[in-house]
């Protein structure tokens, strides 16, 4: 008897005997508006006020940074660039004024150099934007590289266990015990001159450890789940189990961890550049700007504040978005006891 025949026979048998929980149940149980997991997560994320505000601000900052002075040869709308020196006007003080006239201020005005000028007369707004571009670029590349490595190592260790796990996790432990800043500084000094992209990859090679541990933990628990056992019982090969069954169920954890990794990367890049191991002149980054003008803090504080403000804004908004994602992926929110 072929499957079809068997199926038809049994189906008619089941229905003929008035199988109680059959179609009636199906129709009824599904009368509630059903949403996919993804829809639920999206809905929760969009309702997370802090995350939404942060996301808006971050998008605005990214747009501002990349459109204002242009990027990769594409010209921007801002009149100055970040490398041509000019005549220093009024000790390079910012011309931006947000103080309205009725409160005794100068009224709203952008002026010639809203963020002021540096020692060489370069427009500080353009410089800050360039710094933000590089910092954001590095952060995202680090996020991608670190997540990839972390997921691969964590997944292998968590799925195969045994000596694979021991080897990979001991390696991870060794990486964790060495202070990140020290490794990054050594690598940064070697590769910092090779441009921000190389620097980003190098930092990514250092920052994956936390993610690897997290993913390993997820894999360890998911591989014992019954649906994974069911796949093994069907005869599925490891690659299928890893990519079709386990990995899709770790998307939430990976997304949250990657976001927080990006926030971390921004701070690490800042610290490295501040110490002189990161991005080098003539290019610039937010960390480098802060470091260059740390001595001007007392006399020309805007040279310190502007890049600082952007570092804080980017790091904070990314962190808030990470929090929002974590809340959105957390299934415990909807749990009701009965």
């Amino acid at each position: 008897m072929s499957t079809e025949e068997k199926a038809a026979a049994a189906a008619s048998a089941a229905n003929g005997n008035g199988n109680g929980n059959g179609n009636g149940t199906a129709a009824q149980g599904l009368s509630i508006v059903a949403r996919t997991q993804g829809q639920l997560v999206r809905r929760r994320f969009f309702r997370h006020r802090g995350a939404m505000i942060s996301l808006t601000i971050l998008v605005l900052v990214i747009l501002l940074a990349y459109t204002s002075i242009g990027f990769a040869g594409i010209p921007g709308w801002w009149i100055w660039n970040y490398y041509t020196p000019g005549k220093v006007v009024n000790r390079g003080a910012p011309t931006l004024s947000l103080w309205p006239t009725f409160l005794g201020g100068d009224g709203f005005a952008i002026g010639e150099h809203p963020f002021g000028q540096d020692d060489l007369g370069r427009d500080y707004f353009a410089l800050t934007m360039r710094g933000a571009q590089i910092s954001i670029l590095i952060a995202f590349v680090v996020g991608i590289v670190g997540t990839l490595i972390g997921v691969i190592i964590g997944a292998l260790a968590g799925y195969y266990r045994g000596w694979v796990e021991s080897g990979l996790m001991r390696f991870t432990d060794v990486m964790i015990t060495i202070p990140i800043l020290v490794i990054a500084a050594v690598l940064g000094q070697k590769f910092g001159g090779a441009g921000p992209l190389v620097l980003a990859i190098v930092i990514g090679l250092v920052l994956w450890t936390g993610l690897a541990r997290l993913i390993r933990g997820e894999f360890l628990s998911l591989r014992e789940k019954e649906f994974v056992e069911a796949a093994r019982a069907l005869g599925a090969k490891p690659t299928r189990i890893i990519f079709r069954h386990i990995l899709p169920n770790t998307v939430g954890v990976i997304t949250v961890a990657a976001t927080l990794l990006i926030a971390n990367a921004i701070l690490l890049e800042t610290a490295l550049s501040f110490l002189g191991f990161g991005v080098r002149a003539p290019d610039t980054s937010l960390g480098l700007l802060v470091s260059t003008y740390q001595n001007a803090f007392a006399t020309r504080p805007w040279l310190f504040w502007w890049p600082g403000l952007f570092i804080i804004t980017i790091a904070l908004t990314v962190n808030f978005i990470g929090d929002g994602l974590r809340d959105a992926f957390d299934p415990r929110q909807n749990r009701v006891r009965a």
Binding site: N17, G20, N21, G24, T25, Q28, G29, S31, I32, A338
Partner: peptide, 15 residues
């Protein structure tokens, strides 16, 4: 013989 389940499922408490 055959068992006698109650047809259907409990209703949603929301709806």
């Amino acid at each position: 013989g055959r068992l006698r389940p109650i047809t259907g499922a409990p209703p949603s408490l929301i709806n």
